[in-house]
Design a protein around this nucleic acid. Structure first.
Length: 495
RNA sequence: GCGCGGGUAGCUCAGCUGGUAGAGCAGUUGGCUUUUAACCAAUUGGUCCUGGGUUCGAGUCCCAGUCCGCGUACCA
């Protein structure tokens, strides 16, 4: 093997890597496997630190994330996803050979420690190392030990670097996992069963977004990634699953933004014999339970990078419920629905709402709603009595058939959850879908309509955007901060 | 898609009206037996995103591209 160090001019990064590779080779010379193997631990790092007792024999493992070398004494931090603990190592106690091995270790290396717990002079819970095992050598340097990793692009592309160096990021993803567990157990306790329905669909339905298209070779047919599971979950209502939910990914081939990732996580739940108001109560109870469990109460503070509170969301119950038309009148004038469509168009510029020429009348009103109500609503608001054009899969209101029996829950300036009294009349459903499909390219899902003809019980249904819910509860400003691997453009150098 | 802002050492960041690149951390060497952003001393380290242009001279100015961010559009 040629000696690269003499022939190839090295980049500074390559030099850092070369130093670590030399240590890797040295470990092997010393008879140590730098990539370890089984190591039995009896304590989780964070548990050990939180429930700390002195004088206990423990076996722990983690990544070395700090090293304070005092000559004969070493202090170093061992960390994992949930926490860190300080370890102490005394050169004399360990012996020369072990110190030689230890000195081949760097920040970022994984290590197993066997030792005894004690408190230092300043009261830091610490494990006194009696023996250690190299578990994995890291060949590349870690991000800055104090500032962590700040570069957004690297944080998203190499999330592991973000997770190993930024506590705030670890906290969000740990909470997200616990929150999803909480949602599942909340629903399961209430008799809902979790199912999985197709993500590859012949007719992408249940929403009006652009789907991703793919192709099945053996069947020789195009398939679509689902944009919503709704039409399959309703087939299960027909089949007799009277309380059912699915919590998984949807895919929409639309723009990417602070609030949109092409694949995102959605909860959909259907409850036979209930209606949209029962579903609103259910969501309210679920979200408040999560806030109390994970956010320390019903007041959620969002902070900026400097730690200043930028927004406080008050989830105190009962959440406000208001009809769509009343909200519009509140921002656009009491006469909004009396004046002509042309006058409504004219009024928009005065309200600072941009509209385009090809918008239908109801779309103009919807635009007013989104810009003047939705984006300014941070505390929970259930918007009810929505125009039927916006929601083709919900039951019409018995008193006014231009409206549907739905809510749209707004929190944090975004739609977090819609809830319907589900439309179960197959003839009306066909009519509503065909009207809708008129201007759109969407196909009507005949298999779904066939299922409805077999009888779907009346039911309440909800969708909850999990990413947005986690954003609201953790104060994350971007969906990319709550999705582990957000979609990014291929970077230069990749194929 | 469009508009605005950004890309400087492995990481976090400075770099003035254009004058030839700087700190802290990490690394390396030495010192230190209770430190914790350990400390002290010394030291290595640069395709200033890429490609053109203007200029005696470009990290800095101009143009194009690229990736990231924010806004906007699309997303019943």
């Amino acid at each position: 093997m040629p000696d690269e160090s003499d022939t190839v001019p090295k980049s500074p990064e390559a030099e850092l890597i070369a130093v670590r590779r030399e240590k890797l080779a040295r470990l092997r010379e010393l008879g140590v496997d730098p990539f370890g193997g089984r190591f039995e631990t009896d304590h989780e790092i964070n548990d050990l630190r939180v429930n700390f007792e002195e004088g206990k024999k423990v076996r722990i493992a983690g990544r070395i994330t700090a090293h304070r070398d005092m000559g004969k004494s070493h202090f170093f931090d061992v960390s994992d996803f949930r926490g860190r603990i300080q370890c102490y190592l005394n050169a004399k106690a360990l012996g020369e050979e072990q110190i030689e091995i230890f000195s081949q270790l760097d920040l970022g290396d994984w290590i197993g420690i066997e030792g005894e717990t004690f408190n230092t002079k300043v009261g830091e819970p610490t494990v006194k190392t009696e023996a250690f095992k190299v578990l994995s050598k890291s060949l590349r340097p870690m991000p800055d030990k104090y500032h962590g990793l700040a570069d957004k692009e690297t944080r998203y592309r190499q999330r592991y670097l973000d997770l190993m160096s930024n506590e705030g990021s670890r906290d969000i993803f740990l909470k997200r996992s616990l929150m999803v567990n909480e949602i599942r157990s909340f629903l399961q306790q209430r008799g809902f069963i979790e199912v999985e329905t197709p993500m590859l669909q012949d007719v992408p339905g249940g929403a009006a977004a652009q789907p991703f298209e793919t192709f099945h070779n053996a069947l020789d047919m195009p398939l679509y990634m689902r944009i919503a599971p709704e039409l399959f979950l309703k087939r299960l209502l027909v089949g007799g699953m009277t309380r059912v939910f699915e919590l998984n990914r949807n895919f929409r081939n639309e723009g990417i933004s602070r609030r949109h990732n092409p694949e995102f996580t959605m909860l959909e739940a259907y409850w036979a014999y209930a209606d949209f108001e029962a579903m609103a109560d259910l969501v309210e109870e679920m979200v408040c339970g999560m806030a109390e469990k994970f956010c320390g109460g019903l007041e959620i503070e969002h902070r900026n990078g400097a730690g200043e509170v930028t927004r406080t969301i008050n989830l105190k119950r009962p959440w406000k419920r208001a009809p769509y038309r009343d909200l519009i009148k509140g921002v656009a004038g009491e006469d909004w629905f009396e004046i002509s469509p042309e006058e409504r168009c004219g009024k928009c510029s005065g309200l600072g709402v941009e509209i385009s020429a090809d918008m239908e009348d109801y779309e103009i009103t919807q635009q007013v709603f989104e810009k003047l109500v939705e984006e300014h609503t941070f505390d929970p608001l259930y918007v009810t009595h929505v125009p039927k054009e916006l929601v083709p899969l919900a039951k019409q209101n018995t008193a006014d058939d231009s409206l549907v029996d739905v809510y749209e829950l707004i929190i944090n300036g975004q739609e977090i959850s819609p809830g319907y009294s589900e439309l179960n009349d197959p003839d009306v459903q066909r009519q509503r879908l065909e009207q809708q499909a008129g201007g759109e390219t969407q196909k009507v899902d005949e298999e779904f309509l066939l299922a409805l003809e077999h009888g779907m019980p009346p039911a309440g249904g909800i969708g909850v955007g999990i990413d947005r819910l986690v954003m609201m509860l953790t104060g994350a400003e971007s969906i990319r901060d709550v999705v582990l691997f957000p979609q990014l453009k291929r970077s230069a150098g990749e194929d």
